[in-house]
Structure formats: C-alpha cells, structure tokens
Design a protein around this nucleic acid. Structure first.
Length: 722
DNA sequence: ATGAGAAACATTTTT
DNA sequence: TGTTTCTCAT
C-alpha cells in the first residue's frame, strides 16, 4: 500500500487530529468528542508509527472494549498497511489479558488452557458456594454477592484483603463466598472475566521478569474508550507502560455511561495527574451531526458539574431543528414514531439509516407491535445471545470438559444432558466424594460405587465417562469442527433434540450446526488451531456482533437501548420515553447518578446525523400501572433555538392526523384461510406455526425464535407454507 | 422428573 | 402488565 507516506496519510486529517497522530512519545490524552474521527486518528497513528517511526508491528498494543471495535480497527489498519498489520496487537482488554495469561498462568498455579467462566457460570459457582456454606440464598442473593465480588476484583481487592476489611455480617458472608469461589475456580482451572484482569495485574506485579518482558515488548500502547476503564485496567496500563510511558488514551468523559459496571470516570479526568507531562489534545470538530443537534446535545451535557468544558462544532450546517414531541401515551408515541419512520422511508431513506433508542429494553415492545403491523422491517439489538443459548452452552461445555476435565461447572452442566439418568442426587454424592478425597469431580466419576451411587446411576455414569474418554482420544488428532461433530453425535445430544420433533428443537439443531460452522471457520482461519485456542476465543467473543452483521442485509430499522447505541450513528434517531422516572430512570435519581444519565442522553443525541426526535408521553402504562410522567429534565435543558416542540393530540377517534394513519390500515382481500397447526411465513418475522385462532380474525403465531405474536389476519403479511 | 400455577420481580451490561 | 423463578403436586 502506498498510503504509508506521511504526506499521503496526513492530508485527510484536521490539525488537532494530525497533532494526535504525530505525538508519538510520552503520555497523550486525546479528548475525542462524539463523531470527531477518533478511529481515524487511532488507525493513522498506528500507520505513522510503523511507516515513519521504525516501530515493529508487534511492539504496538491497541486496546478496545469490544470485539467489534477491535475487528473494525484491525480491518481499517490492514486495509491501510497490508498484511503486516496482522502482527499488531489490536484487541480487547480481555483478549490481551488472555494472551498474556496463557503465557504466565503457570506462575500463578493455573494451567494455560484455563477455562473462562461467563456470567452464568459465575453465578452457578456463587450459588454452589452459598449452598456449601449453608447460607440462606434469600438473605444473600447470589446476584448481589456476585456483583460485590466482581466490584472487589475490579478494585483489585483479593479475597484476603476483602476479608480483612469486613464491616458487617453481610460482608463477612461475601468474604467467605469470595474466598471459596476463588478456590473453586482455581481447582477447576478456571478464571472469570474479572480474574483475567486481576490475575494479569497480579502476575505482573509479583513477577518482575514477567513485568519487564511485557513492558518491553509493548513500546506503544493505545486505549480507546478510556472513560470506560476500571481501576484494574488502569493499573494494568500503568504496568505495561512503566518503561516507555508511551500511552495514548482516547476517550470522552461525556460519554462515560458504564459507571455501574465499575468504570471509573476519574481515570480519564485525572489522567494528566496520573501520567505527568501528559499532552492533551481535544478533538472538537464533529463530522457527524448538524449544528442543531450538536448545539442541543452540548446544551444538555453542560448541566453536568463534574466535567471538563468542551464544545463540539460542525461545518455541516444548521440542519433541521431537533424535534420534541409530546404524545398522550406510549401507544400514540409508538404510532407516531412508526409513521414518521414510514414517511422517512417513503422519502427515500433506507430503514438501515434509522434507529429508535430507549432507556430500558422493555420499551421496545409497544413499538415492535406497531412496526410489525405497519410492515416496517426492524431488528432489536440486545435480545438473547447466540452463545448464551442453552444448546450452544451445552455443546461448548462438552468441549470445555474435553479440554479441561477439571472444569467442574461444565462437567455438572453436561453430565445429565441429554438425560441419561445421572440426577442431582448422584452428582451431589460424587461432589461430596471428590471433596472428601481432595480430588476433582472428573476423577471421582471413575469411582461411582465408592461414591455411593445406586447401581443404575453408576452404570449411566460409566457410560458417560466412556463416551467422554473416547472423545478425549479423538480430540488429539481431530480438528475442532470434527471434534464438535463427534461430540454432538456420540453424546446423543442431537439425537435427543431430533426426537422432540418440535420447532424449537429444530431451531436448536440449526444453532448447533451454526456452531460447527464457527468451528470450521476457526480451523481454517487460524494458523495453529487448537481446542484450547478455540474455546478461549469464543469465550471472549460471546456476543452477536458477527451474526448481527450478516443479518442486516436488507436494511432494517434498529431498536436498541441507549447503552447499545454508543459508538453508532444514524441519519435519523428517535429517542423515546424521555420522561422523568424513565429517563432519567427513577433508580438513577435515587442513586444520585443523574450525571451518568445525562451523559447517556448526550450519547443518544449525538448518534443522529441529520434528524433527531425526542418523544415523551403524558401517561404511560408501566408494570400494569398507569403513571403520569413529566417530560424529562433533559428536555427542559434543551436550548430554545434549534428545537421545535410539538404536542400531538388526537384529531379524530382513529389517530393523529393524516400522516399518522396513512399507512396503517390497508386490509388485504387475499387473507389466507388458516387453522391451528398450520405452518406460516410472515414477511418480516419469519416462519412459525399457528397456535390459536380467535374470533375477529386474530391469529396467534409462534415463530421459530420462540416468540408468540397475535396478528390480524386481514392486515398481517402472512402466508401459509407447506 | 416434569409441569402447572403461584408468587415475586421488573435499569443500563462492551468482557 | 409480562416474565421469570419457585413450589408443590403428579
């Protein structure tokens, strides 16, 4: 690629961006306002280091928070620089820690093929601990305990230190669980997400040779979304740049919205203090939004006290005013938004350029109903995740046990799945037997009689153990995909699903096939594919980014929470439910985290490129209660100019004026004649089965994804399939 | 071991 | 108001 000469790649940067690219030595803080081109800065800076500063690819570590962001950055850098880019460490905090830990785990007594426990695995372990300690799970809610442990880990407080700080009986229980939890993970040769950071820090702090090696190997470190780092991540970075001090942090304190997950906004606010001689470069030119939108967003965020002054501007002109619309209730709000979307599409916008954002997931429902009826294609971000589906977790658990038989959580998960007569009682006995002997659960499975299992259970267990051992033998010379196929076959898992003969089961089998596809892809794309490698990769890639991307070919309106909208942009954005109690959420008002809510509002507003509409309803049905809500204080904080306020009232019994009803009800004359049990396909919802028919032409259809929906035969784009 | 029915519950969630 | 989780009965 020829884009590697400075005069080429510097020309498409503004002065501040250029300065950020050229400042390579010493600590650098780039305050990157929304839409200010920070990804461009990041990628160009990598290019500059390689092309003009003689830096080798493997000396650069570029950290992001999401796999998606890492993937995008990698792609851009590769596009710019060619294959050399592949040697650059562009990855998430967790993948980087995973890579480091794989090399260093043995110093801490873990083996390098450690298993990574996700949220639900972690919760299982907490529950097991509470049970073992005989604490009442009503008083000590597992989720609460877990979040205490997680917080402690983010603060780098280990079990011993936690125990030393105990101030109440509750704390004492947390401390006991924490310590037992860590021991359980250790004997399972497993770590949780938080451990990945905490243990990496631990190994670097306790072993100077390790610290020196890694600090030497990364001469240049860059971190994106620095405002979202937690304390552990901060300490990790400090250790990694100990020698060079070449740390570039890119972030925007106004977009810190993950405080509730341990992100510490002070990291970015105090960066200059933490890293003396820091150079600070603000990027204030916005390339995304019109000035009406920016002005409005700036005005709202200026109400935060704990903040560094910043003023975004753009040369994209004034644009349309921001629309603020009041409706009667959530239904009219949804109808209004849907009709506006329909109008935008009619004017030539693509559905993919439109987003609806809201504070809580539950708010999508009402809107979905209207969108379906109006036949507007949409996707909801944040539904059930691929890797969290039961069948996928089961299949992965099999692989985990094959790779790391000590992994007790996975073993317990699959022992009786599919059902093979190894019940909870038997597993409990085995567990007790293993504990008594100080061995692992897997080893105990070799001695069912000694563990006191009934004859039938013992036989079942032997069968299970045989299958697993055969598979383990296969594991040594099969590819990951082959092994997975062997697992699905030999375990009887797929067979059990197939014999269910339901749509759900068929969907599960399809999901499993998709997982085999993922494994195949891994086998092909990786230089040295190994089972451990595959497992570590997918443990950290546990979201639906990949699927999300291939699915939105046709262009669909995107529905998502404000949190999920971070980092994205759309031509038109509808922010719904902008009401006191909803947004800001009543919990946030109680918890005094209003400033974070306001930042969330800022994030949402700055997603819009050309058109921003904020709606609020006077009445809203929430949890079966009708509440009267005031408009959000954030609406009061909007400027006078560049904002157009509108109040929608019914003009007739049927709707909100012409534009609201236009597309709504056009009955079809060719409605299919359906009966219960018929297979049907819906134009936007996929196929499913009719499970009920009511008077008035209302059918209930259960779709393949498990959702059930009531549809009006006369209007729904439904057809019968064979 | 499975399912029906009651009770409890209901921000946000990059890894 | 929907959903999930728990309990109890089968």
């Amino acid at each position: 690629m020829s884009a590697t000469r400075p005069e080429t790649y510097l020309t498409d940067l503004n002065p501040a961006q250029r300065q950020a690219v050229l400042t390579t030595e010493g600590p650098l803080l780039v305050i990157a306002g929304a839409g200010s081109g920070k990804t461009r800065v990041l990628t160009h800076r990598v290019g500059h280091l390689l092309a003009a500063c003689g830096v080798k690819p493997n000396e650069i570590l570029a950290i992001t928070f999401t796999n998606k962001a890492a993937g995008e950055m990698k792609e851009r850098v590769e596009h710019q620089l060619g294959p050399v880019a592949r040697a650059i460490w562009i990855m998430t905090f967790h993948s980087a820690c995973g890579r480091i830990l794989r090399r260093e785990a043995e110093r801490l007594g873990y083996r390098s093929n450690f298993t990574i426990y996700d949220q639900s695995d972690q919760l299982r372990v907490v529950k097991a601990c509470l049970e073992e300690l005989e604490r009442d799970p009503k008083r000590f809610v597992p989720r609460g305990i877990h979040s205490q442990i997680s917080n402690a880990k983010n603060q780098l407080i280990g079990p011993d230190e936690y125990a030393a700080r105990v101030a109440s009986f509750y704390d004492q229980t947390v401390a006991d669980v924490y310590s037992l939890y860590q021991r359980k993970l250790f004997t399972s040769n497993a770590v949780d997400f938080d451990d990945m950071l905490m243990l990496t820090v631990d190994v670097l702090q306790r072993f100077p040779e390790a610290r020196e090696r890694w600090a030497k190997s990364f001469r240049y470190v860059m971190v994106d979304e620095y405002q979202d780092t937690n304390h552990a991540q901060y300490v990790l970075l400090k250790l990694l740049v100990e020698l060079s001090q070449n740390l570039m942090a890119v972030g925007d304190p106004d977009q810190s919205v993950y405080g509730f997950r341990g992100a510490d906004i002070r990291n970015i606010l105090e960066f200059e203090h933490d890293f003396p001689a820091t150079k600070v470069i603000p990027l204030e030119q916005n390339y995304r939004s019109t000035n009406s939108i920016l002005h409005a967003a700036n005005q709202v965020i200026s109400h935060n006290r704990e903040r560094k002054e910043k003023n975004l501007w753009s040369d994209l002109g004034e644009g349309e005013p921001v629309h603020v619309v009041e409706t009667e209730d959530e239904h009219s709000e949804a109808r209004f938004v849907a009709s506006e979307i329909a109008a935008l599409i009619a004017q030539g916008s693509s559905a993919g350029e439109i987003a609806v954002v809201y504070r809580t997931n539950a708010q999508s429902r009402v809107l979905e109903d209207v969108l379906v009826r109006q036949d507007i294609p949409y996707q909801v971000i944040g539904g059930p995740r691929f890797y969290e589906r039961a069948e996928i977790k089961d299949a992965i658990a099999y692989l985990q046990v094959l790779d790391n038989p000590n992994d007790a959580v996975s073993l317990l998960r699959i022992a009786n799945r599919p059902r093979r007569g190894i019940g909870d009682t038997s597993l409990g006995r085995l567990n007790a037997y293993a504990d008594g002997l100080g061995t692992t659960l897997w080893e105990a499975t070799a001695f069912p009689e000694e563990a006191g299992l009934a004859a039938a259970s013992a036989r079942a267990l032997k069968g299970f153990r045989d299958v697993m051992q055969t598979l383990m033998a296969t594991a040594t010379d099969a590819s990951v995909a082959q092994l997975l196929e062997a697992v699905l076959d030999r375990s009887g898992y797929v067979e059990a699903l197939e014999s269910e003969r339901t749509i759900e089961a068929r969907g599960r089998v399809e999901n499993l096939e998709e997982l085999v596809g993922v494994a195949r892809e891994y086998d092909q794309a990786t230089e040295e594919p190994t089972l451990s490698g595959f497992l570590q990769e997918i443990s950290l890639y546990s979201d639906q980014d990949a699927l999300r991307d291939d699915e939105d070919e046709g262009g669909q309106v995107t529905l998502m929470t404000l949190h999920n909208a971070k980092g994205l942009e759309f031509r038109a954005v509808f922010m719904i439910g902008v009401e006191e109690g909803i947004f800001p959420h009543s919990r946030s008002i109680e918890e005094n985290s209003l400033e974070e809510e306001r930042r969330l509002c800022y994030v949402g507003m700055t997603r819009a490129k050309e058109r921003l509409t904020m709606t609020h309803a006077m009445r809203r049905n929430l949890y079966g209660r009708v509440d009267a809500n005031l408009p959000s204080r954030f609406i009061d904080e909007l400027p006078e100019s560049g904002v157009e306020r509108e109040r929608l009232r019914p003009t007739s019994w049927s709707g909100y004026g012409a534009r609201a009803v236009q597309r709504e009800f056009i009955p079809r004359s060719d409605a299919p004649d359906l009966s219960t049990g018929d297979a049907v396909r819906h134009a936007s919802l996929g196929s499913g089965i009719v499970i009920a028919i009511e008077a008035g032409g209302v059918v209930t259809v259960r779709f393949e994804d498990g959702n059930e929906r009531r549809l009006m035969l006369e209007y729904a784009p439904l057809e019968r399939i064979a």
